[in-house]
Design a protein around this nucleic acid. Structure first.
Lengths: 116, 116
DNA sequence: TTCATGTACAACCATTTGGTTGTAGGTTAC
DNA sequence: GTAACCTACAACCAAATGGTTGTACATGAA
């Protein structure tokens, strides 16, 4: 199942969203259990509005989703997006492994003057 | 082998460094083969100084290292750091899997009124 | 030596980011 | 109905980001 290739802009947003300790903690909390924005906000030493903005950044990156229930806005994590981000990093590692293999092959090839 | 736990600040830097398409391409290039900064700079439609700054951001995040040779500064990738970043994302996925397992266990437990 | 190349770094600028306070509107509880 | 709660959103601010140009210096090539 190909899920829709990520655009450079979407990748920018994912990494940028992960680049803040408060947001990483919000992700963790939302993965552990669905929580309202104000419930999340109580955990951090900053205003409700600030937490609201962090949640918006995570939502724009599709790392979390919001669901309205009554007066609350419930936040829950989107593990599929995290998985895709992890795969992205793996892809860079793969480039390295391929290079390492290439070098390995070159080293194990007999050099020009070595035929018996 | 525990390599030295990453601090929140280091994690910030890794993700922030990955959050730019030019920098992600520089990483890719450096993983493919060692290149000088000016050699890299030719690839992008921006000034040498701009590329120099991107390289500095990547270096601060330990995603690449520089090695001086003659008048050139050779850039090469640090796959170990990429690996750690990927593991970090996996950790968030693990939180989700644990929750999923927990829910699964709850669902498979017999409910209060079900004993025969 | 002289010139071209590769780098470092400062100064500057526009935009984005991460925080604040304040105001307003919808929903629940009493 | 009224008060308390949850959210949305605007306006503002300081600091960081991503780019530029310009200057200076070290190294390699002719």
């Amino acid at each position: 199942m190909v899920v829709h290739e990520l655009s450079e802009l979407e990748i920018d947003r994912i990494f940028q969203a992960m680049a803040d300790a408060t947001r990483r903690d919000i992700i963790k909390q939302a993965m552990l259990r669905e929580q309202s924005v104000s419930e999340l906000a109580k955990r951090y030493r900053m205003s409700f509005a600030a937490v609201q903005k962090h949640v918006a950044v995570l939502e724009r990156a599709s790392l979390i989703t919001k669901e309205k229930r009554g007066r609350e806005q419930l936040v829950h994590g989107n593990p599929a997006m995290l998985h895709r981000a992890a795969q992205l990093l793996d892809a860079y590692e793969d480039i390295w492994r391929q290079r390492a293999n290439r070098i390995g092959e070159l080293l194990s090839e007999p050099s020009q003057g070595m035929e018996s």
